[in-house]
Design a protein around this nucleic acid. Structure first.
Lengths: 303, 303
DNA sequence: GCACTATTATAAATAATACTTATAGTATTT
DNA sequence: AAATACTATAAGTATTATTTATAATAGTGC
């Protein structure tokens, strides 16, 4: 529990003796009695094998050894003093912190390139690490600080989890540009149901928002491919007649043609979620703004 | 005895937990048991009013607050680590140490301009302080580190005091350039004794080396002005017919004419003296060389 | 030079607290 | 669901820091 067998608290006394030039006064400053200072000094003398201070006149004079040591001691103490007194600060230019995020693949593709650019510009030594955390584990992962941010359409509902809507876009029906649908003016609901659909979901079963909307109309679409990652779909769509119900910005970004859906469906939403313990952390606050900016930029870029 | 009421030794544990990601392993590193680490952590938690580490999986995850603190703690600890392990070092470029010297006025005039220039070039933040310490007090002042160097013709003879001859010059008889003596070829002893002499000495009574040499010849010179500071003599000499027995370099420096003394006298010598406790101190060693260089330079400049 | 003052060092006793062993509690893993 | 791995708590012990009281020492003033 001691650094090199040295009780670090002794250094506080050491510094006080140096600045006061007197053991008695040092004691008053530190708030202990003179014999306590004397005893602390004798421990330091043993440790450094040097008198450190020599009695002269009405006080003590530092030894050359003390002059050599005090510089470093003062520097170290003032670093601690500052960092312990000051409320937490985050200096992007200097920080080499790693921020861990949970993004699904569509969010990664949507904002990671934009975000990493912003981060790197402001904070060259900061690194980001993004790995997807399953929705069921989000609450825990955020609380345990395994990740500091999650982007998800349905973040945990918990008083400890803060969230903010950062992305919203309407669903459209996307397909390849030379698809026969491209010539049609509107997409009817019959046509929609008749098409071969791709469904992307991280879960093993269960439909998407669209399927819930259809179910309300007692309708059902024909899903012929179910996969976990959105980013594989452009390739599939371009070599088939399949369609993908996705956001307009996804279609735009991946150069797909699309039609407005022939029925009502709630928009696609993504929330940024974080644990309340990080709510006022300057580093997290800084990154939070950058993430929000990045999503906004993504939205306007592919609108 | 604690910095802001924080036991600094706890920070060693704090750092160990951070690097190990586990209280148990941190204990092994620091050399205490796991409950001791746990207790240290709980004190830190109270102090910082934050969990600091959150238990997750087979270890603990640092909190955002911890991330903010650890940077400074590590910096401070590594400064201490280095400075406590490393034998004393002196970095002229960084040091802001003040070196205290004892120089009489002639030495000040001789080397201080040269020395301060050298010092300032190599060590912009170092300062010098020169005040004369009476010969009787030198031993004490050096031992008590009130001064780290003394320049004196007769430094204390003591096994604890180290000394080195740093300046030697012959005595000459100096006077103003348009003095009638200037036309003479040599100075006879009769002429010398017949002149009006200035005698400089810090002591209230007693002669100089020259007077001792004359005494051996059972001779005596006529001292009509006794003063304490050499630096007033040029002005007096230039407005009178008085002469001053001084070193050749003093005469040259102050633009005086001079003649070789018509009798044998030991040369003027100055020793640099320091206490043995500073003998191997890097800062003192550094300055010692600079002082020696400065005297050598002074000698060659006014030779 | 001697007494007086101011300061540091030492001694003994006390108070504080850090550490250990033992155990309970709490996640995670298989 | 049991086992594992880790952290937290409790109680007791040992250590050590601090205090009061006193001695020793150096410097100051008459």
């Amino acid at each position: 529990m001691k650094l090199n067998n040295l009780d670090l608290n002794l250094l506080v006394v050491f510094n006080a003796i140096y600045t006061e030039g007197s053991l008695t006064k040092a004691g008053e400053i530190v708030g202990i009695t003179q014999p306590a200072v004397s005893s602390a000094l004798s421990k330091l003398r043993d440790y450094f094998d040097d008198p450190l201070f020599i009695r002269v006149g009405q006080g003590v004079q530092p030894t050359a050894k003390t002059e050599n040591i005090i510089i470093h001691v003062r520097e170290a103490l003032s670093i601690l003093q500052k960092s312990l007194e000051t409320p937490d600060a985050f200096d992007p230019a200097e920080s080499s912190r790693t921020f861990k995020l949970s993004l699904n693949d569509i969010s990664e593709g949507r904002v990671l390139p934009i975000l990493i650019d912003k981060v790197h510009n402001q904070a060259p030594k900061v690194s980001l690490s993004s790995y997807y955390t399953r929705r069921d584990d989000l609450q825990h992962a955020l609380a345990a600080n395994e990740i500091c941010f999650a982007v998800d359409p349905f973040p945990p509902s918990d008083s400890e989890i803060k969230k903010e809507l950062i992305f919203e876009d309407e669903f459209v029906c996307g397909f390849r540009k030379d698809h026969k649908l491209a010539k049609e003016k509107n997409l009817s609901i019959e046509q929609y149901l008749d098409l071969d659909h791709i469904h992307i979901s991280g879960r093993k079963r269960g439909g998407a928002l669209v399927d819930n909307a259809l179910a309300k109309l007692q309708l059902d679409r024909k899903i012929i491919l179910r996969a976990q990652h959105y980013l594989i779909t452009p390739e599939v769509l371009n070599s088939s007649d399949m369609v993908l119900t996705c956001t307009k910005s996804f279609a735009n970004k991946h150069d797909l043609a699309y039609k407005t859906l022939p029925f009502e469906v709630a928009p696609s939403q993504f929330f940024l979620a974080w644990h309340q313990s990080n709510d006022t952390d300057p580093g997290c606050m800084w990154l939070r703004e950058l993430i929000k900016d990045s999503f906004a930029e993504a939205k306007s870029r592919w609108h």
